[in-house]
Design a protein around this nucleic acid. Structure first.
Lengths: 114, 114
DNA sequence: TTTAAATACCTTGTATCGCAAAGTATTATT
DNA sequence: AATAATACTTTGCGATACAAGGTATTTAAA
């Protein structure tokens, strides 16, 4: 059973307003496959702090929407890692997010002009 | 009783991620006093759709945080209007939001560079 | 051999937000 | 009076972000 954000297109912008984290995650994974802990490190470096309790459900949601897939890989130390990849559908979503983000940035520029 | 976002400064950015509506409202009111229906119209023109059920609680929250004040004014037609004004504290908050927004936009630019 | 440390994934409960929908109130028009 | 137009408010729901705690695997130390 899917939720309200499956029709896509029309409400990408509405969702964008709620937070940019989904956009961040897809952007990161568009460049390179990664696992949760490494994504957290990358976001921390970019000063966009995220904690595990936020990221794991988010990755699961994006996977359930078909934007991501994953595979297990051995780690040099510790338990195996769940590497996520962006899918074709994820790349299309990312393209829509780019447009929505651009519009929001332009709107804010307009609103902030005195 | 205040909530988690009263310490200010540290979490402006975290809040910003949740949505840009607060930023929009303060931006609009920084230019000119306005009442709810006129704010909705202005946001609609800027393609940032907001409905009453979103805006009214938001205005009340910002008023409770001391970012806004209001006064009643007669309307040429219909019931009186509640005109909101941004306060000094609201302007300081807006300045912090400007910084937080700038950082988020820069972060997204970085993350979207292939 | 047990214990601890490091790494990694996952879940639960809470506060908050955005929205649809319904409700209340005032004024002007019919 | 009844209706329309305007404006403010509240309720209930679904979704998000986070703190906190939990589970599991591997390696190193005691």
């Amino acid at each position: 059973m899917e939720t309200y954000d499956t029709n896509n297109q029309d409400n990408v912008k509405a969702q964008m307003r709620k937070g940019v984290l989904d956009y961040c995650i897809l952007s990161i994974l568009a460049k390179k496959d990664a696992y949760a802990s490494s994504i957290i490190k990358e976001l921390k470096d970019a000063k966009m702090i995220v904690v595990e309790g936020t990221l794991y459900p988010l990755l699961i949601r994006e996977k359930n929407q078909g934007f991501l897939s994953y595979r297990w890989e051995e780690s040099p130390q510790g338990p195996p890692r769940k590497y996520y990849s962006i899918t074709e559908k994820g790349r299309r979503q990312l393209a829509e997010m780019d447009l929505a983000w651009k519009e929001i940035v332009e709107t804010m520029n307009l609103l902030r002009q005195q």
